[in-house]
Amino acid sequence: MHTVLIVDDSDINLTLIKALVLKLGECSPVLFDRPVAALEWCRDNVPDLVIVDYMMPEMDGLKFIAAFRALHGRNEIPMLMITANDQRDIRYEALLGGANDFLTKPIDRIEFSARARNMLSLRTGQKFLADRAEHLAALVDERTSEIREREKELIFRMSRAAEFRDPETGAHIQRMAHYSQIIARGLDLGPAMEKLVLEAAPMHDVGKIGIPDYILLKPGKLTPEEFEVMKGHARLGYELLKDSGSEILRAGAEVAMSHHEKYDGSGYPFGLKGTQIPQLGRIVAVADVFDALTSERPYKRAWSLDDACRFLEEGRSKHFDPLCVEAFLAGWEDILEIRQRFRDEEVPQI
């Protein structure tokens, strides 16, 4: 059903046009003899066709068309203006001002029907395209969302694969990723970056896949040579993830390469200092170390929260970016909630 708005100050014209509109079929006419009242109606209603007289008190047809077009979302609604035969200049002005076509008085039913039907076909086409565009956008969004979800799941599972070869647990990955997100929020990096941090952080240790078991699983302290090999996991992780078409994997590569750098330049693999270290790496360093300290492992007991916080504070500008430590501590309530939500469980054996 098409809604046809008719605006004419003459009752007889309103009645005639209404009768002609009803003869078109599938149309519901809405009548106004005052253009200002019609405009008010248009603020809350979207007609499929507007038929407006030129000469009216309060506001002529040209002004009505301009005011109607200025309303949000009314730019493409077909409009027919009714003019007298001798008003050629007005017709030109109407066409230039936003009318799609015009009708001349006295109104001829054949001409009226043809022009009105053309305008309604145009409207039907517009609606079809709009619906289709909306449908396609929803479809793309749905498919993209599925792909992103699958990508996230694969990343998590890949990260778990690395962690299985290590005393770390799946819960560690979740906690440190969420801690990283809290830091990103504290740094005001925006929702998109917060999400990227959350999704990329789990890949920090993925390079451990390439470290030999005798080093990775060694119960005692590593020799200097073994430690050098162990440090290689940062580069291995980067090599594994770099140049990906996925923004998340590229961010993961940056995290893997830089999460063992230290703010004072004493870290590895490059000994970068301060803001030379990618921001993702500076964020993840705080989150990863805090969770490692406060988690129980076969070779160590869990530190108390106070001791771990003191370690972070003492490590400001040495091990850690002071702004990241500040952001972490500012989100303390959320940190505690994350700790509660992701508790350590027994790691499944491969």
């Binding site: 009752d11 007889i12 009768a19 109104i107 039913r109």
Partner: peptide, 20 residues
């Protein structure tokens, strides 16, 4: 002819014209 041969509309128009 202009009203598409519609007697009903014609009668309505006449009534309105006369009344107005």
């Amino acid at each position: 002819e202009r009203l598409g041969g519609d007697e009903e509309i014609y009668a309505m128009m006449v009534d309105m014209f006369v009344a107005d």
